[in-house]
Simulated assay, not measured.
Amino acid sequence: MDKKNALRAGALAAGTTLMMLLMSSPASALTRDDGDDPGPGLSVIETLGLFVVAPIALYLVIHALVVIGDKSHKKKDPTSSNIATKAEAKSEVKA
């Protein structure tokens, strides 16, 4: 019974999506609206810098800040996240 319900739900979702795509009108991007004043276009270098280099640089900055913050936490609190310290403590208790 579960396979029939899943198949029915999938067919309904696919059919609904297909009908919405077929019935929607295309965006009229080629006709200008009143008051529309587009600026100058971006060059290839500007586009790559804005949409590729800038996000990668932002990711690396955030990643570096998180790693620096995480390393300082491990030095301050060895009992909560440092497994080597726990293992050494157990071996000292046995000896």
Rank of each mutant, 00 (worst) to 15 (best):
M1H: 13
K3F: 15
A9T: 10
G10E: 13
G10F: 01
G10D: 13
A11G: 08
A11D: 08
A11C: 05
A13V: 05
A13E: 11
A14T: 05
T17D: 09
T17Y: 02
L18Q: 07
L18P: 01
M19F: 09
M20D: 04
M20A: 09
L21A: 07
L21H: 02
L21E: 05
L21R: 08
S24L: 11
S25F: 09
S28T: 03
S28P: 01
G35A: 06
G39A: 10
P40H: 06
L42T: 00
S43V: 00
V44W: 02
V44G: 02
V44P: 00
I45R: 12
E46T: 01
E46V: 01
E46K: 02
L48I: 13
G49L: 11
G49I: 06
L50Q: 13
F51I: 12
F51A: 10
P55Y: 08
P55A: 07
I56W: 04
I56R: 01
A57G: 08
L58K: 11
L58W: 12
L58C: 10
L60P: 02
A64Q: 07
A64S: 09
V66K: 02
I68S: 01
D70A: 05
D70T: 03
D70Y: 04
S72E: 11
S72A: 10
K74V: 14
D77S: 15
D77W: 15
T79N: 15
I83W: 08
A89E: 15
A89L: 15
K90I: 13
V93L: 10
